[in-house]
Amino acid sequence: MLLSTSSGTTLPVQAISASQQLAQITPNTITGQLDGNSNTLNDGSYFNVHTFEGQAGEFINIEMVSEEFDTYLLLRGPDGQTIAQDDDGGNGDTNSRIVMTLPTTGIYQILSNTYSAGTAGQYTLTWQLITEDEVVRLQALQRATALNQQAIELLGAGQISEAIYPAEEALALRREYLDDNHLAIAQSLHNLANIYRRFPSRYEEVERLYLEALAITQEQLDDSDDLALITARANSLTVSILNGLAWLNQRQERYKESEDRYLEALRIVNNHPDDLTFELVVNTLAGLSSLYHEQERGAEAAQFGAESLAVIQTQADNLPLNSAQREQLEERLDILSGLFNDQGFNYDDRELANEFEISLRQSLPALEQQWGRNHPDVLLDYYYLAHALWVQEKIFQ
């Protein structure tokens, strides 16, 4: 990706391979590969170039999809300047789309790019002329994607009330322009439920949103005909929804329903491990441990708590850390392992939970700065911090 590129600037790129120049007026769908043989931007990311001839006033849709990397898409006009770019505006979380009216007649260049430097993999690129009505629809869906991401970021920053409006607007746009059983609608329902659940007075509404989202993902799984991409997305979202429902039922002391939800999520975890992020696996195992601990089912609580730590340990073993970083990580995991006894999580009383909260708040900023928020050790610490706050009834924190 070119981080500094904006409309009206020229891309600083290395020489473009002549073999990658395609001049086509008709719609095209091609499969490409980004790797060390591709062109390279100044930021170290790979790109290929594909060209088409366009007429001023034409409406065009360009979409880049990959199951192997986070895509990035740029469009250069006939004068060689960038006129549009997109990161995650396409179908799925990391695909790209550009929808626009062509400003002039001439040869346009599409740059199929990756978000991160050095990322390689296969992709599919499609471009075609569309109607003005379709432009309106696709641009509305791109706005929904942006609103959805805004809501997630606000929620992550603790701005819960501010996250409600963009999440609601994203859902409204997707309901207006997508089929009722589209996975993007399920994702918006799930995201809105995750925000509303911060308010106990809205628990009934939260459950309704989760259940509607779950019905969509299950329908998609029933109708997917083993399409790998759809199945993987639906499985991942289903596990996340089930974990949310289980959490809600646990808060409502509907323990049997909570357990059933967690066990259903665990079945998907066991049957489709390649479809899920390790965070989802950990959330499922740790959620079960927390539920059993609350019910004083100590042996089961300890079992699933230990399994969640084992998953994180496996993920940590695969991280490219230097010896000092790995030593720090192992120390943190040892501390966390020490929080378990034969009753599961070993911080029932508020005094101990408060001590643990203080310790985590002191260590988390440095860890996050060094390793990033998505590092497994950092994510696990956030999970334990949330649990320690919950023990102290600091619900909204």
Rank of each mutant, 00 (worst) to 15 (best):
L309S: 03
L319W: 07
R76M: 13
E207K: 13
S45C: 06
V311K: 14
G121V: 03
S66K: 07
L129N: 14
E53M: 12
Y210P: 07
A18W: 08
N235F: 04
A324F: 06
G338W: 13
G118A: 08
A228P: 05
D79K: 08
T217M: 05
Q20H: 10
A146N: 10
E294G: 09
L245G: 00
E296P: 03
G80I: 10
D274R: 06
L227M: 09
L147K: 02
M64N: 05
L237N: 06
I83K: 06
R251Y: 14
E68R: 12
V391M: 02
H387F: 10
E300I: 06
A353V: 05
G57A: 01
E68T: 03
T5R: 07
F47D: 09
T124G: 02
E53V: 13
Q128W: 06
L211H: 03
P365T: 12
D349M: 03
T104Y: 05
L242M: 10
S201G: 08
I160V: 15
T114H: 09
M64G: 04
A353N: 03
L263V: 03
F396A: 12
Y210T: 04
N249W: 15
D317R: 09
S96H: 10
I395P: 02
L276T: 05
E327W: 01
G80M: 12
Y46W: 00
D35E: 07
Y108W: 07
W127Y: 15
F59H: 14
I268G: 08
N346W: 02
W247R: 11
Q343F: 11
G244V: 12
E168F: 03
G36M: 07
M64R: 02
L141K: 08
P78Y: 00
D334C: 02
A388S: 14
S66H: 05
E205V: 09
H272Y: 15
N270P: 05
A146Y: 02
T284S: 02
I16C: 08
N37A: 15
D275T: 01
T5D: 12
Y165H: 09
E53L: 08
E68G: 02
Q81R: 12
N91F: 11
E205K: 04
A117Y: 07
D79H: 07
S4W: 12
G32R: 01
V391K: 09
S4T: 09
